[in-house]
Design a protein around this nucleic acid. Structure first.
Lengths: 124, 124
DNA sequence: CGTAGTCGGAACGGCGGGATTCGAACCCGC
DNA sequence: GCGGGTTCGAATCCCGCCGTTCCGACTACG
């Protein structure tokens, strides 16, 4: 069996919700507010989030939920840094209950690492 | 006539309102929200603004009206710079330019993983 | 297949951030 | 002392932001 999958590239909205700690409807709402947040969709219309999408969501979350920007203010900040291609490690503040949760986080983090490795090999 | 008054030390609320372009009730409201904004009062109870008060008001105005902070967010910004006296960039962002940056992120991520492993072994 | 997940849109809601109103007190020139 | 302008704090009102809930319909997947 392939007991783990390398290079997980896409996430459903429920996965993203769990990873980011944001309700699904908040994700949809933010998507309607931030043109930068534009996950692809599959043929059925379901959202297909990439690691980049997720890190953008974390960025918005930091601005809006932690630093206290309005949505409008957060847009400005994002707009002003458009095009810098930043990748960043997000602080996973998920409520960790079980070791299953932790395993999931490890898997996702590895996906993040794989993503980084890709970028690295593409850039170095 | 004295064609301008220099070194005026105190201002009434109506003067401050004119100077800052903010309604009087907004000045009173902000005063109720920001403990830092605390103009003295005369014996009659009327507010007596100093130049320092006014520049603080302008600072709040920049944060709330231009940059798009909520009142709460503006409080944090003001609070966080109390006593360091330096203008600062609010957000911590990692602009990925070089593979050195990526290496750094990888290192940090490894630390993050180690942390997770600790938690995992503590719980599993 | 069943059922769990997702979809978009519309209606709804809390509350933050003022805005307005009020009666009372004060200030100042006369 | 009198009248007009300014200010006061408290109470009340209000609008829009930021979600939140609800919905019926569609689809992925075991």
């Amino acid at each position: 069996m392939k007991d783990f999958e390398f290079k997980k590239l896409y996430y459903s909205i429920s996965e993203v919700s769990r990873i980011t700690g944001l309700e699904q409807h908040v994700l949809r709402y933010w998507e309607s507010q931030f043109s930068e947040l534009n996950p692809a969709k599959n043929r059925a219309g379901n959202r297909i989030y990439t690691n980049k999408d997720i890190s953008l969501i974390f960025e918005i979350k930091r601005l809006v939920r932690e630093q206290g920007f309005t949505i409008e203010g957060a847009k400005k900040v994002l707009g002003s840094k458009a095009g810098d291609g930043s990748a960043q490690l997000v602080e996973t503040e998920v409520a960790v209950e079980s070791s299953d949760d932790l395993k999931q986080i490890l898997l996702e983090t590895r996906a993040f690492l794989n993503d980084l490795i890709e970028k690295l090999s593409g850039k170095a």
